Amino acid sequence: MISIKKIVVIVICAVIVVLGIWGLKYLISIQQYQKIISNLKIDTIDLSNIHDGKYTGSFNTEYVGAEVSVVVKDKKITNITLLNHKNERGKPAEVILQNVVKAQSLQVDTVSGATNSSKVILKAIENALNSAK
């Protein structure tokens, strides 16, 4: 007959193993996320090649994602709407939409403290504009 002590020890060991596996998976996913963000490049877009219209684009990582709608008229970005923004602390990055419209370029500064969300939003805008080609 198994004593209560042995059952408690087995349960505690099982919980430690499960938590260890979960923690390891979490650390691996964080490393992959950081690698994706650090390797993320925002290309220059030539608006002269983009016809008038409304274009949707998105970019997602495990922790941050964005979906945007971009309106182009007369070879200019006239409006960008953020349709979805999955973020951690990246809400301040949403100002980047106005910066892109003002600059008519994706080559704008990222928002300090929301750099990852800034990059993801810019990549979503790039993907939207690339879908117009």
Rank of each mutant, 00 (worst) to 15 (best):
N87F: 02
A14Q: 03
V15I: 11
L24G: 06
L24P: 00
S105D: 08
S112N: 04
I42G: 04
L122H: 07
A66R: 07
Y33Q: 12
T56H: 13
K86M: 05
N99E: 08
G90V: 08
K102D: 07
V100W: 07
L47A: 03
I12L: 15
T78I: 14
A93G: 10
L19Q: 07
E126S: 02
V68W: 02
K25Q: 10
I30K: 15
Y63H: 05
L97E: 06
Q34C: 04
I2M: 14
L27N: 12
Y63G: 02
I77W: 04
I2K: 13
L122N: 05
N127H: 06
K6N: 10
A93E: 09
K75M: 05
T61K: 05
E67M: 14
K5E: 11
N84Y: 08
T56N: 14
S117D: 06
N116T: 09
K41Y: 06
N99Y: 01
I7T: 09
A103T: 01
V72N: 11
K5P: 04
V100E: 08
A93P: 07
I36G: 00
K6C: 02
W22M: 15
G113W: 12
E94M: 09
K119F: 09
F59A: 02
K35N: 15
K91W: 07
V17N: 00
I125P: 07
V101T: 03
T81F: 04
V71C: 09
A93D: 12
T110C: 08
I10S: 13
N60A: 12
V72S: 12
E88I: 11
G53L: 06
Q31Y: 03
K73I: 02
R89Q: 10
N127A: 12
N87D: 06
K5M: 08
G20N: 01
E94W: 04
T115C: 08
V18T: 11
A124K: 08
S29K: 14
K5Y: 09
A132L: 02
G113N: 13
T81D: 15
V9T: 08
S58E: 14
I21N: 00
I7V: 13
G113P: 14
K102G: 00
V8R: 08
E88C: 00
A93I: 11
I28H: 10
K54C: 01
K25H: 07
I96W: 13
V95N: 12
S38V: 00
I77P: 00
E62D: 12
I4W: 13
N39S: 14
G53Y: 01
T115F: 05
L83Y: 01
K123Y: 09
